[in-house]
Design a binder for these strands. Sequence first.
DNA 1: GCAACCTCTGAGCGGGCTCTGAGCCGGCGC
DNA 2: GCGCCGGCTCAGAGCCCGCTCAGAGGTTGC
Lengths: 243, 243
Amino acid sequence: MNTRNAALTRSDGTPVRVLVVDDEPDLAEVVTGALRYEGWDVRSAGSADAALREARTFRPDAVVLDIMLPDRDGLSVLRDLRAEQPHVCVLFLTARDAVEDRINGITAGGDDYVTKPFSLGELVARLQGLLRRAGMTRERAAGSLLVVGDLELDEDAHEVTRGGDPIDLSPTEFQLLRCLMRHTRRVLSKTQLLDLVWSYDFGGQAHVVELYISYLRKKIDSGRAPMIHTVRGTGYVLRPAHR
Amino acid sequence: MNTRNAALTRSDGTPVRVLVVDDEPDLAEVVTGALRYEGWDVRSAGSADAALREARTFRPDAVVLDIMLPDRDGLSVLRDLRAEQPHVCVLFLTARDAVEDRINGITAGGDDYVTKPFSLGELVARLQGLLRRAGMTRERAAGSLLVVGDLELDEDAHEVTRGGDPIDLSPTEFQLLRCLMRHTRRVLSKTQLLDLVWSYDFGGQAHVVELYISYLRKKIDSGRAPMIHTVRGTGYVLRPAHR
DNA sequence: GCAACCTCTGAGCGGGCTCTGAGCCGGCGC
DNA sequence: GCGCCGGCTCAGAGCCCGCTCAGAGGTTGC
């Protein structure tokens, strides 16, 4: 399990089921790994046909679906999926400049997509958002609010407050904080943070993580009991500001 | 569920039932998805015969009906539907230059229509309007008024006021604002807004959204505490003014 | 048939965001 | 005590994102 918080589960208590469909084995592997790390039950397929076959027996709650598959068009796969399982959530993967007109209207149906290259944290967050909104998980009630001590982060509203005071963050700062809050009390290495927050094709150094941690501290910890702690030689932890 | 507001339900508490009838699978899929996202119980049919068969068992509260079906004329389908279920609401889909005199006869009966290509937000709003007027939902009382802070939008009257002052908006501006107001305090990406407010066949870029947001701000926020906020890298949110 | 309005495209610009590099500090080991 | 290494912070360059303006084309209404 990844977090101290219970892993996201379905209403019957079993882990959420996700099917990953991508024809690039490397990418599929990375995504699959990240989702398993979330404690979910993950399977993968390399083609549309395989995906539909797998879906029939596996009955996933959500599908991560590359829109550029060798054999079939993304929207038609969606249609076939929905025909058998009307309530499955779909998260599309698409190239930045891909002809997006093929998926016009997708987000209006509650489905979502991320453009390649994406960060794994983003992918997971989007997927959780989909599942939450579909009412498919136990966390329905909790909504989109992450709370650690007097620090609150609303994923839907993109609002962050500490002790009630609003704090505004840049996109990267926001993602980094979300990531820390998701894994409260667990030390995350710079490499892990790099893998989660930055796109998988980011070539930069771990130094950026330090930099962004320092930005975050300025906005969140300055003048208060610190919540972000560094564990020398290992990484960073977020903890409620003791007492 | 999609909105903060509870899903529209029938007076007995079960979800509203909608039957979508269209012979273009892609369009039907998108429409079906959008309605399902509203929390409704949706089924679809690709032909008039299938529709009538489905209606007999499904007993929908409303039908979204393409007037140009391959096998039968839309109006005759309407007659047959009404013969069995006199109180069903019907929303027609029709081509822009369709014979209007026939349409006029229809709307006199309390039904409504939208012309292709339409926006999904418009479709949903019209359908809600129909159901509301038919007294088929719990929200009857709430009426067609959306309120956020001192900003009010009347969906039926197409009127908008802020702090009591009337504001007039172009059709697109109106739809965009309605969409933002329906999802108060939730960040909507430009893509989402594009999918909801613009027609499903719109090929343009997300840039238009920025443009219309700027128009809206001029009319709604200028000289007052801003309500429309941009979340860099993500989208836009509407929030009650100040604090 | 003309005028007013609406919608969208394109371009320019301003500013925030991201990342690089360098210097500094403090802890820890030799 | 000295040097090294890991982490922190500052400053700055470049880029990208979002905002706005101006204008073309289309539509509506008179």
